[in-house]
Design a protein around this nucleic acid. Sequence first.
DNA 1: TTATATTTTTAGGTAAATCTAAAAAAAAAT
DNA 2: ATTTTTTTTTAGATTTACCTAAAAATATAA
Lengths: 220, 220
Amino acid sequence: MQSFTEENYLKVIYHLAQKTTNVQTNAIAEQIQTKPASVTDMLKKLAEKELVDYVKYQGVTLTEKGKQAAVNIVRKHRLWEVFLVDKLNFKWDEVHDVAEELEHIKSVDLIERLDEFLGFPKSDPHGDPIPDKNGTFAKTQFIKLIELKIGESGTITGVSQHSSPFLKYLEKLGLTLGKQIQITDITDFDGSVEISVNDKQINISREVAKHILISNNGKI
Amino acid sequence: MQSFTEENYLKVIYHLAQKTTNVQTNAIAEQIQTKPASVTDMLKKLAEKELVDYVKYQGVTLTEKGKQAAVNIVRKHRLWEVFLVDKLNFKWDEVHDVAEELEHIKSVDLIERLDEFLGFPKSDPHGDPIPDKNGTFAKTQFIKLIELKIGESGTITGVSQHSSPFLKYLEKLGLTLGKQIQITDITDFDGSVEISVNDKQINISREVAKHILISNNGKI
DNA sequence: TTATATTTTTAGGTAAATCTAAAAAAAAAT
DNA sequence: ATTTTTTTTTAGATTTACCTAAAAATATAA
């Protein structure tokens, strides 16, 4: 079993490893809100426990054992987020911090029963996939909204930015999960995107469009 | 805000204070599974924070601030127990350890929403009262089953022993919360009690009868 | 009321996770 | 190919919660 702190390191390394193979000390420090020196200490400890492969000055990768542990935390985090939104009526921008605490509750039985209670959800309130109890993710097929061309359409199925202001903004625009959208225009000047959603035309910046994930896309 | 460990001390002191006014160092150490020397250290720290009144060699009492914090943990613990039993189908003997972890989740919003989701329950799966968000307990009127006389009856509304074997045993006998019972005989020899429940006659020891709490009692 | 037992505290130390400041290694720029 | 910058590590402290062993205070018994 890992400590609360070790679990946080594993989770952060897991997420950072989606971008780069070898995860850097500084990147971890930034995520965990601590100093690089503290990270080095912890990496040694995790390597000792065979949860990461660590070579001085070369960054880390998770071992199979470390990856399993990390995926399990991700699973718990996302299931709790579903609980908070579906059952306790939290908004999708309010759940992160609470789930951050709940994800460390240890009982295996609890999480299996929670999964069942929630109806074995496949994704969390932000569209992120929930691994099953063996750590397997369902294959998901997303493209970024920014990649759609004029006339193309699709369904909003995720976001790649979880900050509260961003999520609140999308909510205000009516750009929530499950919504059907169509690209009606792309401005030459700054690349901002005009889309039709809820029978209305709205305009979003390229930056926003980058972080909206679309599935079932195609021409109409 | 208190640390996880501080919260545990406050909770234990709160529970022990139901029996004696001045809570002793050794009693705390036993409950928390630690050494008396460690308890002394922590009592100094809690006194420093004005959560307890502590006089060397004289034991401790909670201050008003300390009591508030303790009652809040009790509230969270009991609400989570209701969640586990009512929503996740845990048995009443399985919930204690998990609730012990969940009670330390900090979000105030979470616990208010959970309370609402559960329908503002007034007692937990063992019949213990749940304080409201101001820390007020509803007045409860229990007597021990052992105090009933032959012919008297009542409703099982609580237990004063939470060990898993005890709870499992009661479950097997059908002595669960809400059940209507009547005393049909009390054995002279060892004081064991014959009761009628679910249209059957069963026999329990004095020791068991001491830990079953009855309300609405009276002659029939 | 003195002796004995129990309870509690002090003193000094350990382990986990953090820190700052300085040194070392690696990467980038001239 | 140096120099400069950035990244990472080491060394030595700090804080929290715990420990053991010994001393001190309190309670109990003779």
